[in-house]
Computed example of a mutant assay.
Amino acid sequence: MIRVTEQESNYNDIDQMSVLEILKGINNEDKTVPLAVEKAIPQIDKLVSAVTNRMANGGRLFYIGAGTSGRLGVVDASECPPTFGVPFDMVVGIIAGGDTAIRRAVENAEDDSKQAWIDLQEFDINEKDCLVGLAASGTTPYVIGGLNTARKNGVLTACIVCNEGGPIAKESDFPIEIVVGPEFLTGSTRMKSGTAQKLALNMLSTAVMIKLGKVKGNKMVDMQLTNHKLVDRGTQMVMKELNINHERAEDLLLRYGSVRKAVEASQKPL
C-alpha cells in the first residue's frame, strides 16, 4: 500500500524558513484537515449508529492505539466521565506500552501484534462491546492484532486511519479513512493526522453520548461537578431551566449532584 502519511512534505528547506513562514505553512496545512474529515462523515455516521445501538444494550466502547494515536484515544475516553457523567469503564482508552507510554515512548510496543488482545482481556471485553483501532499509518501491528482477535470474538470493530486500503481497515467492520496528505514535517503524523483523528473522536463520542440521552437541548446535564467553573456552569443551567435565583439553583445542584437530577427533583415535591 502507498502510505500518504509518509510522503515527502510539500514544503522544502523548512529549516531555512523564518518563524513566520513556518507558522503560516503549518496553518495552511491544518486548514485542509476539516475538509478531509468532512469526506468521512458518511463513514462516521454509520459507526455512531452501530456503537450507539451496542452501548444502549450494555456494551462499552474501547480505543486501542500506539504513540500519538493511542494518546488521543486515552484523552477522548478520559473526558467522557466528567463531560457526560458515565462510568469510567464505559469508554476505555488503551495505549501500546501501557500508561507509561502516555508520557514516554515505549520501545517496540506497537510492533507486538498479540499484546492488544491481552490488554483488552483485563477489561473482559466481549461481544456486546465495540473496539476502535487508531493508527495514522493504518498498519500498526498492535492495532491489527487487537482488531483481528476482537472480530473473531464477536466484538464490533472500527478504525480511524489516515491512509486508504491498509490492513487495519480490512480488519474493521466500520473503517474510517481520513486522508489528509503529506505532513508539513515529513512523516510527523502527530500533526495533520493527529488533528484529523482528534476531530473524528470528538464527533464519535459526542454524537454517541447525545443519542444515549446524556445531553438535553445543548447542555451537558450529567457533567461531573469537579471544580468551581463546572459548579458555576451547572448553576447557570439550573437557574435558566427552573427560572430561579443563583443561591437556590446552586443549593439544588450541590444537593443532587447534577443538573439533570437537580431539575428533576425540583419538579417533584421536595
Rank of each mutant, 00 (worst) to 15 (best):
4 V>N: 02
6 E>W: 05
10 N>I: 13
11 Y>V: 13
13 D>G: 05
16 Q>E: 15
16 Q>K: 12
17 M>G: 00
18 S>T: 15
25 G>I: 03
31 K>Q: 15
33 V>K: 00
33 V>Y: 03
34 P>L: 04
35 L>H: 11
40 A>E: 13
40 A>Q: 07
41 I>G: 01
41 I>K: 15
42 P>M: 10
42 P>D: 12
43 Q>N: 15
44 I>S: 06
45 D>M: 07
48 V>G: 06
48 V>I: 15
49 S>N: 14
49 S>F: 14
50 A>E: 12
51 V>W: 09
53 N>K: 13
54 R>M: 04
55 M>W: 08
55 M>K: 01
55 M>F: 13
56 A>N: 15
57 N>T: 08
58 G>I: 04
62 F>G: 12
64 I>Q: 07
65 G>Y: 02
65 G>F: 12
69 S>I: 08
70 G>M: 10
72 L>Q: 13
74 V>H: 07
76 D>T: 05
77 A>R: 04
78 S>N: 08
83 T>C: 05
85 G>H: 12
85 G>R: 13
86 V>S: 06
91 V>P: 04
93 G>F: 01
95 I>S: 07
100 T>W: 01
100 T>C: 01
101 A>C: 04
101 A>N: 03
102 I>E: 00
103 R>G: 09
104 R>I: 00
105 A>G: 01
105 A>E: 14
108 N>K: 14
110 E>Q: 14
111 D>N: 15
113 S>I: 14
115 Q>I: 03
116 A>H: 02
119 D>C: 09
119 D>W: 07
119 D>R: 01
119 D>Q: 05
120 L>H: 03
120 L>V: 13
121 Q>I: 00
123 F>N: 11
128 K>Q: 07
131 L>W: 06
133 G>L: 01
134 L>W: 09
134 L>F: 03
135 A>C: 09
139 T>G: 11
140 T>Q: 02
141 P>I: 10
143 V>K: 10
147 L>D: 10
148 N>F: 06
152 K>P: 05
156 L>D: 10
157 T>C: 08
158 A>Y: 14
160 I>E: 10
164 E>D: 12
170 K>D: 15
176 I>L: 00
179 V>R: 04
183 E>G: 05
187 G>F: 12
187 G>W: 09
189 T>E: 09
190 R>Y: 06
191 M>Y: 01
193 S>R: 06
194 G>Q: 01
198 K>P: 10
198 K>D: 02
199 L>V: 14
202 N>R: 08
204 L>R: 10
205 S>M: 04
206 T>I: 08
206 T>N: 07
207 A>H: 02
211 K>G: 01
216 K>M: 12
216 K>D: 11
218 N>E: 14
221 V>Q: 14
222 D>M: 10
224 Q>D: 09
228 H>M: 02
228 H>I: 04
230 L>C: 08
231 V>N: 06
234 G>H: 05
236 Q>P: 02
236 Q>I: 03
240 K>G: 02
240 K>D: 15
241 E>G: 00
242 L>D: 06
243 N>G: 08
243 N>R: 01
243 N>C: 05
246 H>I: 03
247 E>Q: 14
250 E>W: 00
250 E>I: 02
251 D>Y: 00
252 L>Y: 12
254 L>Y: 05
255 R>S: 14
257 G>N: 10
258 S>E: 06
260 R>G: 00
262 A>L: 13
266 S>Y: 15
268 K>T: 14
268 K>L: 11
268 K>Y: 08
270 L>H: 10
